[in-house]
Design a protein around this nucleic acid. Structure first.
Length: 479
RNA sequence: CGGGGUGUAGCUCAGCUGGCAGAGUGCUGCGUUUGGGACGCAGAAGUCAUCGGUUCGAAUCCGGUCACCCCGACCA
């Protein structure tokens, strides 16, 4: 049951976020430290995310498979950077079946190693390439600090793993999947993202290059919402992933990996939510339209419910996800309750509407009277369909405007510090090295989110070192 | 792993100068209500984190343990 008011975003954003997660019934706390229980309503949002992505993966030629949860510890050690990056956050199984294991198993933090081992067996010839695999799975990373959906010890995700004959093909795949993520965020989640390349410090342990999509949350912080890695030949060499070329020469493959997780649920909450609660983009909303019947007494009840059932049947037949709230509560309570849960459209039908063959549609993205329209019952399916499309467009536009208003070009470190202190993204020319990047982080709390793929023409002067710079970077506080 | 805090009803918490286990909210039932968070009446609900100690008597005082939260460190 969603209940009463929520802490305003402006007062305490973290508190607001936590309350939304629980009050909108997305998740509940679990007995296990750092883990959450994803409740049916939250899981349905994840299922919609999965469906949207899975369709796109298939359309781009990928197939799903499933690899073991347990990975022999020695596998991780085969790629030097990889093991160094992950060892602090591994959960290791040392005992099983009442006995100490000969070799411990690591609970997968990601599957490059065990999938690489398989790839080395599956791939013999250039004819076996490219190999395009995806896995939907759970992974475990023993994080010290967790937050529901954003960073949990166990989480659900997908990890794509591909092998290619050439460096160019691997790079093309890396960029293609980054675009798939960006397109999904825009078209299904109504979240605008910046595609960019990660700095050396932030790149994936074992990758040649890491790319990410970065989204701005309502508190102006950045959330890395998806990553795509060009792994070069690092894992191919560590796992002996080789093929015989057309010229009968043995060559190492070029591999990629890419993933998004249940963190996306958190992204949806923090990119769209307001002080009334969650706001779900129509394509991901488990319930797109909630029908609330309104009546004063038993005489009014029957005809109102008849009309509701008739309209709901029409909407369902048109493939719209509808729910009738026939609980014995007052309408006002239901309005607030469904707003907390983020349902995009509310359909109200009362005695007056039945009399006039009308209905009321209220949209979640525009509060109050301005978001209400009185329409004829005939043609309601088309009206709802148009409204859902319009809500998506409007939510995307709102989020885009918000991001633009809070992204600032800077050319000096002083300006930079001002922007970071006020919240928001700072974008400027950057030529610093790893140490410079760490210093900026230590001094301001902001990290280099990415070098955007869309770069301005020409060159400039680094706002930190004063050196000539070829690229601009986005810096921000991040989750 | 360092510093601080909290464990009492499903949830939020009061009770802590030792003396019958409490409130708000939620839940169940009945009735009145119903176009923006209604109200009345009746009810169910607890190993007061845990183990030990002091005491005639412990939610309350003392000690140990465990768990969780916040800040820091850590972090695809």
């Amino acid at each position: 049951m969603a209940s009463q008011a929520v802490t305003p975003q402006s007062q305490d954003f973290s508190k607001w976020y936590n309350e939304i997660v629980y009050k909108a019934d997305l998740a509940s706390q679990s007995p296990v430290r750092g883990c959450i229980i994803i409740k049916p309503y939250g899981y349905e949002v994840w299922e919609a995310i999965k469906a949207g992505l899975d369709r796109r993966f298939k359309e781009t030629g990928h197939q799903n498979a499933y690899f073991p949860l347990f990975i022999p510890q020695s596998y991780l050690q085969r790629e030097a950077e990889h093991v160094e990056g992950f060892s602090p956050e591994l959960a290791v199984v040392t005992h099983a079946g009442g006995k100490k294991l000969e070799e411990p198993y690591v609970v997968r933090p990601t599957s490059e190693t065990i999938i690489g081992e398989s790839f080395s067996q599956w791939i013999q010839s250039y004819r076996d390439l490219p190999l395009l695999i995806n896995q939907w799975a759970n992974v475990v990373r023993w994080e010290l600090r967790t937050r529901p959906f954003l960073r949990t010890t166990e989480f659900l995700w997908q990890e794509g793993h591909t092998a290619h004959a050439t460096a160019e093909e691997a790079q093309a795949e890396t960029m293609q999947m980054l675009e798939v993520y960006a397109e999904f965020c825009r078209e299904d989640a109504a979240i605008p993202v910046v595609k960019g390349q990660k700095s050396n410090i932030e790149k994936f342990a074992g990758a040649l290059r890491t790319y990410s999509i970065e989204a701005m949350m309502r508190d102006k912080k950045a959330l890395q919402s998806g990553t795509s890695h060009n792994l070069g030949q690092n894992f191919a060499k560590a796992f002996d992933i080789k093929y015989l070329s057309r010229d009968n020469v043995e060559e190492y493959c070029w591999t990629t990996s890419w993933g998004v997780s249940t963190r996306l649920v958190g992204a949806v909450v923090m990119a769209h939510g307001d002080d009334q609660g969650l706001r779900l983009p129509p394509k991901l909303a488990p319930i797109q339209v909630v029908a609330v019947p309104v009546y004063k007494n038993d005489d009014e009840r029957a005809p109102v419910l008849d009309a509701v059932q008739r309209i709901v049947a029409e909407l369902k037949a048109a493939g719209i996800r509808v729910h009738v709230d026939d609980r014995d509560e007052r309408p006002g309570f239901k309005f607030n309750d469904w707003e907390m849960r983020g349902v995009p459209v509310r359909l109200e039908i009362g005695p007056k509407d039945v009399q006039n063959d009308k209905a009321v549609l209220a949209r979640r993205d525009i509060p109050g009277r301005d978001g209400k329209q009185f329409i004829a019952q005939a043609g309601i399916v088309a009206a709802v369909r148009d409204l859902l499309a319009d809500i998506h467009d409007n939510m995307l536009a709102q989020a885009t405007t918000f991001r633009e208003q809070n992204t600032h070009e800077i050319s000096t470190y002083e300006q930079f510090q001002g922007i970071v202190a006020d919240g928001g993204w700072a974008i400027g020319w950057w030529a610093g090295n790893d140490d410079d990047e760490r210093r900026v982080k230590d001094e301001t709390g902001a990290t280099l989110r990415c070098f955007p793929l869309d770069q301005p023409d020409g060159a400039g002067q680094c706002f930190f070192t004063g050196q000539a710079a070829e690229r601009v970077a986005i810096f921000s506080k991040a989750y």
